[in-house]
């Protein structure tokens, strides 16, 4: 589910449109924490795409809690 980008950060392999994958990951993540409402993009509230610890990259996102999970 993750690859190492050119900056050495781990990015989600599903990009920004893998709604099912991002929801599946978040559903088992102990660090999932919903972002503020205006930053929600997924319809499923429990999704990495709606998490306050995701940092958008050009084509996907990195997770600020990835190393801790």
């Amino acid at each position: 589910m993750w690859f190492t980008n050119q900056r050495g950060e781990e990015e989600f392999t599903g990009g920004q449109d893998d709604w099912a994958g991002a929801a599946r990951l978040a559903s088992t993540c102990p660090y999932f924490n919903p972002d503020v409402e205006e930053e929600f993009v997924a319809d499923d509230p429990v999704s990495c795409y709606n998490c306050r610890y995701r940092r958008w990259s050009t084509g996907s996102f990195t997770c600020l809690k990835k190393d801790k999970a």
Binding site: D35, V36, E37, E38, E39, R52, Y53, L64
Partner: peptide
Amino acid sequence: NIESRGTGE
């Protein structure tokens, strides 16, 4: 910041 309320609020 990552833990604070948002700019929208």
